[in-house]
């Protein structure tokens, strides 16, 4: 049903987008913050990387994207830790502002075509030859490196403090850790990863568009939750790898949907439904169990009810 080419591109895209899933793992799961900066940060990664690649610096583009993402995360963190803006609103405010910033990065144009531009992928193609699965190798390598770095980071003292901040802020303050600082570092790292994801994608598909990041937070969450559902519980390693797995599976779902002629315009709705259902699942389960229990009790009690 799926051709090898489709499987390969699903794997490639899955790897690239898994950086967003891992970023949300850090902000949404570890820090317990729904970070709405994600959409804008992703687009910013596209914009920075495309602009730099067009100027002849594909690698510098990735580095700049990481820095730009960290800045975006810093602003969201500043709003919520120092200025008392509720965390969801802080992300939305930054996200809105980023729209203009992203346009500016792309020279006030809504897209950057890069058909003949040298990208990290064309460089890999030159190195490995035409027939090697160079796109898969590059995207998988980037994902792997980021994943390993993230897990190592979460094992350091700073990483432990960030994890504890999401787990029990009271206890963190009592351990002489400044929660404002740990939240800031966490959001900077998460958005740097999101931005890197956008940066790799822009070079992968050889174009950047101002709307590429729209709905990215939902897509990332869908991937994260698919991964968590399938790979259930485990240590940090399992959780991070589950995010990658979930992202790849999500891309397979999309590829399948496209294959059976679901219009590509419907994909965002599909993602929204997946996320909505996945997050609601525990509550739905509980309500169903309650209804069953009540029905059983009524049947048993029969007419004895007053």
């Amino acid at each position: 049903m799926l051709s090898l080419a489709i499987i390969q591109s699903a794997l490639e895209l899955g790897c690239i987008y898994s950086l967003v899933a891992m970023a949300l793992f850090l902000s949404f799961r570890v820090l317990n913050i729904a970070d709405m900066t994600t959409d804008g940060a992703f687009t910013m990664g596209c914009a920075v990387s495309a602009t730099a690649a067009v100027a002849g610096h594909p690698f510098l583009g990735l580095v700049l994207a990481i820095l730009a993402g960290a800045c975006a995360g810093f602003i969201t963190a500043l709003l919520q830790t120092r200025l008392g803006v509720p965390s969801i609103l802080a992300g939305i405010v930054t996200n809105t502002g980023l729209y203009t910033v992203n346009l500016a990065i792309m020279g006030f144009s809504s897209n950057v075509p890069m058909l003949k531009t040298t990208t990290i992928f064309t460089i890999a193609q030159d190195l490995m030859g035409e027939n090697a699965p160079y796109k898969l190798i590059v995207s998988a390598a980037i994902t792997l490196v980021v994943c390993v770095l993230l897990i190592l980071f979460l094992g350091t003292r700073l990483g432990l403090s960030i994890r504890a901040t999401g787990d029990n802020p009271d206890m963190v303050r009592a351990s002489s850790i400044n929660t404002a600082f740990t939240v800031t570092v966490g959001l900077c790292v998460a958005n740097a990863m999101t931005c890197l994801s956008g940066a790799v994608l822009a070079q992968y598909q050889r174009s950047a568009d101002i709307n590429l990041g729209t709905g990215m937070v939902v897509i990332g969450l869908a991937s994260l939750i698919i991964g968590e559902t399938l790979f259930a519980h485990g240590g940090l390693w399992v959780k991070a790898v589950a995010a990658i797995g979930g992202s790849v599976i999500y891309r397979f779902i999309i590829a399948l949907a496209l294959r059976i002629n679901v219009p590509s315009e419907c994909m965002k709705l599909l993602s929204a439904v997946i996320v909505g259902l996945a997050i609601a699942a525990p509550t739905i389960k509980k309500n169903v169990a309650f209804a069953q229990r009540r029905r059983a009790a009524r049947k048993q009690g029969g007419g004895s009810r007053a």
């Binding site: 994890r163 504890a164 787990d167 206890m171």
Partner: peptide, 15 residues
Amino acid sequence: RGTAPNMTIEENLAL
């Protein structure tokens, strides 16, 4: 209030 429930004993002590 005093411990982080999702982290291990070792990690809590490290904190």
